[in-house]
Design a protein around this nucleic acid. Structure first.
Lengths: 334, 334
DNA sequence: CTGAAAGCGCTTACAG
DNA sequence: CTGAAAGCGCTTACAG
C-alpha cells in the first residue's frame, strides 16, 4: 500500500525545495551532480513517479490520442487499433478508444466529448451512416477546436485533415487483371458495401480493369437479396471468377458455391476482402487482399504526431496510401 | 479556431470572481439564480467546457480506466472491449487500451506504466505467457499501488482482485451431455489451448460429463501436430461428435472433415468456441458456445466502479460468472 | 450571495 | 547551484 509519494514530500525528506527536486529528476543542468544523485536515489527508493495528470496540466496537453472506430468486431479495425497502440507506446502516448458502431448519433456524441479536451488529437474512420448522410459538422467542429484530426481508411471525405488510406481501387483493378491475364472471361463482383466509399472504389477498380467486357455485378446491402444475386451469377451467368468487396459477400459466396456444389477453385475462383486469420482457415482457403492494417494504424499515429509537432505546414494536409497485396491461397489455384 | 476559453476569462468578461463562475456552472445552491443564469448564458455562448485535465487534478483522479487485452484480433476480446467502452461511456469514463499480444514482457511494461497513475483502475485478461510462467509480480504491484484491478475472462489466477469470467467448465459439460442425450457414443475433443486456464476448464467439463466413457482427445499447441491428432480422431477412432475449445481447433476440424470427405452434420457433429460472426458463415454453419462478451465487458466496468465507489468491502473480492449458451446451427443438426 | 485564498502536483522563468 | 514565486485550470472550504 505505498500510496504515491509527491514531489513535495520528497523535498521535505531531502530538506531541499520542490523546484530542486523537480529539476534534479528532469536532469536539469542547473543542479549539482551531488544533489541530483541524492534526489534520484530517494526517488528510486520511494518509487516516485510524477503524477501524469499534473504534468499534463502544466504542459497544456493530455498525452493522449483518441481513436474512433466504427466497428471493432471487424478484424481490420481491430488490427488497425493494434498498430496504433504499438506506435503510440513508442511516443509514450495513451490511446483512448471510442466505438461508434457505425452510428452517426454516437459519432456526434464522441466528437462532442473530444472537443472538451480529453485528447491531443483524433484518429477517425467515419461511420457508414455518416458517409451515407454526408453529415460532417461534428468533424468540422473538431477542426474548429484546433484538435488535429487524421482520417484513416475511409478517406474519401472532404475534411481539412491528414489522411491515411488503402489503395482500394487499385487492389481490385489488379485482381481483375490477374484473372484476365489467366484467360478467365466471366469475372463477377459481389458487394454488400457498394454504397459506401471504400466499396465504390473497389467496384470502380473492377470496372476499370474490365471496361471492354461485360460486368457481372451482385450488389445489395440486404443479405437475402445479395444471396439471390450471387446465386444468379453462379447458376445463370456462370461466372468463372468472383471478387468480393467485403467479409459478408465473401463468406456468402463461398457458402453459396458449397450449396450449389460448385467446386472452388476448379470451377470458380474467388478473391475476397477478409482477414488473413479467417481466410487461411476457410474451406478451401481463400485468396484475399492484404490491407496491412497495422501499418495503417502506425502511420496514422505518425501523421498525427508530425502534425502535433509542427512538422507539416499548417493548412496543408497529407494524404498517404498504403499499398495492398493480393495473397494467393487455394481459391485462386489454377 | 475558437481556442478554448477558461474560467478565468469567463470571470473577467462577467466581472465576477472565478469561484462564482465555477459554482454557477456546477449548479451550486450558493449562487443566486440571476448570476447563475448570466454565467451559464455566456458559457454557452463561448462554448465553454471545463478542462478535464484540470478537473481531474483537482479531484485526484483520472476519469480513465485502463484495459489490457491479450489479443485484439480475437473477436471475443474485441467484443469485450466494445462492452467495456459502452459501459464506461455511461459513467463518463474514458477507456485507455493496451494490447499485450500475449506477451509477459509487454504486460510488465504496461503494468509499469499504469502504476504511474494514468488510470483510476485496470481491467485485465492476463497473457498466455504470463499464465504459463505464472509470474504475477507485476500484477501484484498494481495492487500495491492501490490501483483497483478487475480480472476478466482468464480468472483462474490467485490475485486479490475482483473477477468476471465465463462458465467455461459448465459449457462443455453441458455440450457433452447434449450429445449423450442424443445417443452419440464417441464424443471427441480438440484443443489448441489445453495448457491455459480456460482450455483446462473446458476440457474438465468434457471429462466430467464423460467420466464413465472413453475420452477421445486431440490436444496440441503445434498446428501440424494438432492436425494429425484430429485427423486420427476422425479416421481411426471415427468419433461422431467433436467439441473444440478454441477458434483454431474449430476451424481446423471443419477443414479436416472437408478434406476427408466426412459429412457434417450427417456423419460428424461439431460444436466450437468461435464467434457468432464466423460461425454463421462457415460451411456448414457451426454450432457454437455464445460467451456474451459484451456482457463480460460491461460487468467488468461495473465491478471496477463499484470498487472505486466503495460499494464493496475492502479486502473482500467478488467473483462473477457469465453463463454461456449453446447456439445450435447446422453442424449439430440431427 | 460573492470573493479571496489555498491547493491538486507539477514545471520553469527569475532572483539571489 | 538553490529556492521562492507564479502558474497550468480548476474546486471548495472559509470569511465577509
Amino acid at each position: 500500500m505505498k500510496s504515491k509519494i509527491t514531489l513535495k514530500e520528497l523535498a521535505k525528506l531531502l530538506n531541499v525545495s520542490v523546484s530542486t527536486v523537480s529539476k534534479a529528476l528532469n536532469d536539469s543542468p542547473e543542479i549539482s551532480p551531488k544533489t541530483a544523485e541524492r534526489v534520484k536515489e530517494l526517488a528510486r527508493l520511494h518509487n516516485y513517479k510524477p503524477n501524469p495528470v499534473a504534468v499534463n496540466l502544466k504542459k497544456s496537453k493530455t498525452g493522449t490520442i483518441g481513436v474512433v472506430i466504427p466497428n471493432i468486431s471487424n478484424s481490420f479495425f481491430a488490427r488497425v487499433l493494434s498498430g496504433m497502440e504499438a506506435e503510440a507506446q513508442k511516443h509514450d502516448q495513451q490511446v483512448i478508444t471510442y466505438i461508434s458502431n457505425e452510428s452517426l448519433e454516437r459519432e456526434k456524441q464522441i466528437c462532442d466529448m473530444l472537443t472538451s479536451g480529453f485528447v491531443d488529437g483524433v484518429l477517425i474512420a467515419v461511420s457508414e451512416e455518416t458517409q451515407k448522410k454526408q453529415e460532417y459538422d461534428h468533424l468540422f467542429s473538431l477542426v474548429d477546436y484546433d484538435i488535429p484530426v487524421v482520417v484513416y481508411d475511409r478517406i474519401n471525405i472532404d475534411l481539412p485533415a491528414d489522411k491515411i488510406g488503402v489503395d482500394d481501387e487499385n487492389s481490385f483493378f489488379d485482381a481483375a487483371n490477374f484473372f484476365r491475364s489467366r484467360g478467365v472471361e466471366k469475372i463477377g463482383l459481389a458487394s454488400a458495401i457498394h454504397h459506401v466509399g471504400i466499396g465504390k472504389l473497389r467496384i470502380r477498380g473492377y470496372e476499370k480493369a474490365l471496361e471492354d467486357t461485360h460486368h457481372y455485378l451482385a450488389k445489395s446491402s440486404k443479405p437475402a437479396d445479395l444471396r439471390k444475386k450471387i446465386k444468379s451469377l453462379f447458376t445463370k451467368d456462370k461466372v468463372e471468377a468472383l471478387l468480393c468487396t467485403d467479409f459478408e459477400s465473401t463468406i456468402m459466396a463461398t457458402r453459396i458455391a458449397y450449396e450449389e456444389k460448385i467446386k472452388v477453385p476448379e470451377d470458380l475462383k474467388i478473391i475476397g476482402y477478409i482477414s488473413k486469420e479467417v481466410a487461411e482457415f476457410l474451406t478451401p482457403s481463400l485468396s484475399y487482399i492484404e490491407q496491412h492494417p497495422q501499418e495503417v494504424g502506425s502511420r496514422a499515429v505518425d501523421l498525427l504526431n508530425n502534425r502535433l509537432e509542427g512538422v507539416y505546414e499548417p493548412g496543408k494536409f497529407r494524404e498517404e496510401i498504403i499499398t495492398t497485396s493480393l495473397v494467393h491461397l487455394e481459391s485462386t489455384r489454377f
